[in-house]
Simulated assay, not measured.
Amino acid sequence: MNKVGTAYLLWLGCLLQVHGLHRLYNGKILTGLLWMFSFGLFGFGQIIDLLLIPNMVDQHNSKLRARQGLLPEGALPNQAVIQRVVATHPTPLPPTSNPLLVQLLRAAETRGGKLSVTQGVMETGASFAHVEATLIQMVKAGYADITNDPETGVVTYEFKEL
């Protein structure tokens, strides 16, 4: 995720006659190149961007979140999101003798009842697809809830019983 402070530092590139770096950083390639070759729209665009940078960073981060399939910053998953996830993985919950299921539960227990897919892969050595499918099956069976980490936005699976 992009940071507002970094965008402002790149904006300062105009002092070295390198305009538009903050726009390129935020994914605005065409206007970034326009700023570069027109000296920040002859300085006026560069000055106006001082006010627009926070919004540019927010827009860029929102696009990244959407591309990664994450919820917007601060949003909690709603029932529609959970239903969509469950509907795309209609496989039954594996039997308790499934070693991956037990490994994921132990990994979640060591992390306060919360586990991301990446953490599950690191703990078990299983593939991302296999870990995610198993976690989604646990959601479908009612053993876990899907949430997002409030700081990073990473999708986490929360086990209330742990």
Score class of each variant (00 low, 15 high):
residue 103 Q to L: 05
residue 60 H to K: 11
residue 78 N to S: 14
residue 43 G to P: 07
residue 60 H to N: 10
residue 92 P to S: 02
residue 36 M to D: 08
residue 61 N to S: 08
residue 81 V to F: 06
residue 9 L to M: 15
residue 68 Q to P: 00
residue 98 N to V: 04
residue 43 G to E: 14
residue 67 R to P: 04
residue 86 V to S: 15
residue 64 L to Q: 11
residue 32 G to V: 01
residue 14 C to V: 05
residue 95 P to E: 14
residue 101 L to W: 06
residue 9 L to S: 15
residue 102 V to K: 12
residue 62 S to H: 14
residue 63 K to G: 05
residue 54 P to A: 07
residue 48 I to L: 11
residue 67 R to V: 03
residue 7 A to D: 03
residue 14 C to W: 03
residue 75 A to T: 10
residue 34 L to M: 09
residue 60 H to F: 14
residue 88 T to V: 10
residue 55 N to F: 14
residue 74 G to I: 11
residue 21 L to M: 08
residue 59 Q to K: 15
residue 15 L to Y: 03
residue 72 P to G: 08
residue 96 T to E: 11
residue 103 Q to I: 01
residue 45 G to T: 09
residue 73 E to G: 03
residue 24 L to S: 13
residue 43 G to V: 10
residue 45 G to A: 09
residue 87 A to W: 13
residue 13 G to A: 03
residue 71 L to R: 03
residue 25 Y to F: 06
residue 2 N to P: 00
residue 68 Q to T: 01
residue 23 R to H: 07
residue 59 Q to G: 02
residue 62 S to Y: 14
residue 32 G to Y: 11
residue 105 L to P: 01
residue 27 G to Q: 15
residue 69 G to P: 08
residue 70 L to W: 14
residue 11 W to L: 12
residue 20 G to W: 11
residue 55 N to V: 11
residue 90 P to Y: 14
residue 107 A to E: 04
residue 33 L to M: 09
residue 27 G to V: 10
residue 59 Q to A: 04
residue 106 R to V: 05
residue 63 K to F: 08
residue 83 Q to M: 06
residue 25 Y to G: 13
residue 87 A to L: 07
residue 9 L to C: 14
residue 73 E to Q: 10
residue 81 V to H: 04
residue 77 P to S: 13
residue 101 L to N: 03
residue 37 F to T: 06
